[in-house]
Design a protein around this nucleic acid. Sequence first.
DNA 1: TGTTAGCACTGTCTCATGGAGAGTGCCAAG
DNA 2: CTTGGCACTCTCCATGAGACAGTGCTAACA
Lengths: 355, 355
Amino acid sequence: MAEEAIAAEERLTPRQREILKILIQAYISSAEPVGSSTIQRIGQLGVSSATIRNELCILEELGYLTQPYTSAGRVPTIKGYRYFVEQLVGRVELPASEQRTIRHQFHQIRLHLDQWMRLSAAVLAQTSRSVSLVTPPRAARSRFRHLHLVSISQRAAVMILVLGDGRAHEEVILTADYTDQDGLNQVSNRWNHTLRGRSLREVRASAETGLASAEGWEGELLARITQLMEESDRASVGEIYSDGLANVLRHPEFLEIERFRRVVNMLQHASLLEPILLRMLNTNGVQIIIGGEGPYEAIEHVSLVLSRYGIKHTASGVLGIMGPVRMPYARAISTVGYVAQLVGSLMADVYGAYA
Amino acid sequence: MAEEAIAAEERLTPRQREILKILIQAYISSAEPVGSSTIQRIGQLGVSSATIRNELCILEELGYLTQPYTSAGRVPTIKGYRYFVEQLVGRVELPASEQRTIRHQFHQIRLHLDQWMRLSAAVLAQTSRSVSLVTPPRAARSRFRHLHLVSISQRAAVMILVLGDGRAHEEVILTADYTDQDGLNQVSNRWNHTLRGRSLREVRASAETGLASAEGWEGELLARITQLMEESDRASVGEIYSDGLANVLRHPEFLEIERFRRVVNMLQHASLLEPILLRMLNTNGVQIIIGGEGPYEAIEHVSLVLSRYGIKHTASGVLGIMGPVRMPYARAISTVGYVAQLVGSLMADVYGAYA
DNA sequence: TGTTAGCACTGTCTCATGGAGAGTGCCAAG
DNA sequence: CTTGGCACTCTCCATGAGACAGTGCTAACA
């Protein structure tokens, strides 16, 4: 609806667009309301401040700007930011030197998904100077790949379950007393043979048929496997990796402690961000959510710049950054876009033609 | 040294001890300097405020108290807190009802180390209303237990390495082209046979002898295994689990944003806390570090209540909480002690007579 | 010798006050 | 449509006075 309104009744003149752009850029870098004389000074428009004042008045009436109080400068509204992001910000590439630095860091580390995510989070946080978030890549539908059992005592074993997306789930399980590694191998061989490549539904079916013959602890093992696959299939993005929380404190908007606490809570309790992140899994390119627009009221005062990454339908996650609404969007978009693309190609390299 | 000084020259009279205790308790709960009349009111000492003032004066001279400014009430110094913790706080048990709640939560979850740590962190944070930290249990010296390779594409596999402490390390490695699961099994069987139960040194030796015959990628695999074992042996506590960061913001001492930022940094960059946590691994019982005493200047304004947990020498970690120096120590000590003991006994249950 | 009442003193905190300053909206002229 | 001019409005900051809390000291008392 918002877009329609902009398109239909509110065509801005080139000068208005220019003024809006300069104002928002100035506000993003200064964090202080911008007045007509500032705009006149930094934007070489060749008109007087009075003219600019008139234009500002119009932009305010149209809802792109507000004044914090009667005689301060102007500040962008969410609608203003959205217009800025969609129409005024040119898509810039991340400077080649920064691209090189980032690539270099990625090539130095091990081929470990965990480490990739950690590094992505670190790189995003550092480059954008805000909090980053990264969710692990997940398959749309999990498949059984491999089960392995390692004895750790007479009645306990480590169960390692590798699912289709290449992630291993590790957990201690209790076995029958005096089960040795040979016994464990027999069990895992049997199920690996039966279940390889199967989906949750098929695994569940096989488990039910096969279980009549299975020992007690083996039944629990099977139950646990289906449960893990269920959890993996359930709409959930899993754990959120994050870095750079301290960066948030740089921004004056988070001096108000309550807002900061909200950010901390969002990062620690994934549930708040989950609906947003899940929606991202079906998108392409960098998506921007500004200050709790639309259905996202919960994240008032916060903007998100996010992108899906990975191999579509096979192993996709979400990465991006979170910052104040007054965020340097151009830079944020190019950073997030670059990291997403880089990690995606690394994954494709390793996972190859992997189904 | 500090203890000696206290013992030798500074015997406090019973009344002074009582006054100090009341003052610190009052300060802990109110966060505001405590004056002589407050002490008279809440502690039934049967003396006038003037007498209390005299005693306060002495306690200040001895270094247990200070005044924020000339005519405010008194506030404990670090020395005061230390005396309080060591001599005045009786060791109380956690209320039975809270013990029950905590036990209940632990019995509801899976036998997964990761989950235990997460739950410990959550319980500690919630019960103590401050930030919690938990490090994974580690063996003093790592031993090779089991290697497993799962093919995920023609040239990549998931390597799963289980070490002596039962932790699995998972990582993607590149293999020779067209290596299938059978090929991987051959490799892992060979090394499992040779290396089971071996220490880092022995593994390194075997790797060198065996490598002449090994293919290129197998060499890298071996190198990676020794590297992982080295990392595990190196003085390091691993990743720190934490919860309840937002709780810190409840305390007025962290309204000063810089202090809060320090806390965030400590939690995200384990290196700052590592020396402290490592030292904890050789202790028994709950240890208390108050406001960067002694060698811990870096953690000024913060107190730690920590305890080792797990099975000594086999799999020990550290858990505890971090909060303002003005911390309800009695409660903190009993909470940390209880959780450490509980997790320890759960681990003993599962790992059993496990070497 | 230890305790107490009384009192002057010292610092913080809060609130009101009054410019200074920034930026606006509007008007009338170009 | 643009511009200079100007009254107006609101915040911000420094200042100062008064309330308040709690002290240290002194002198009297048991």
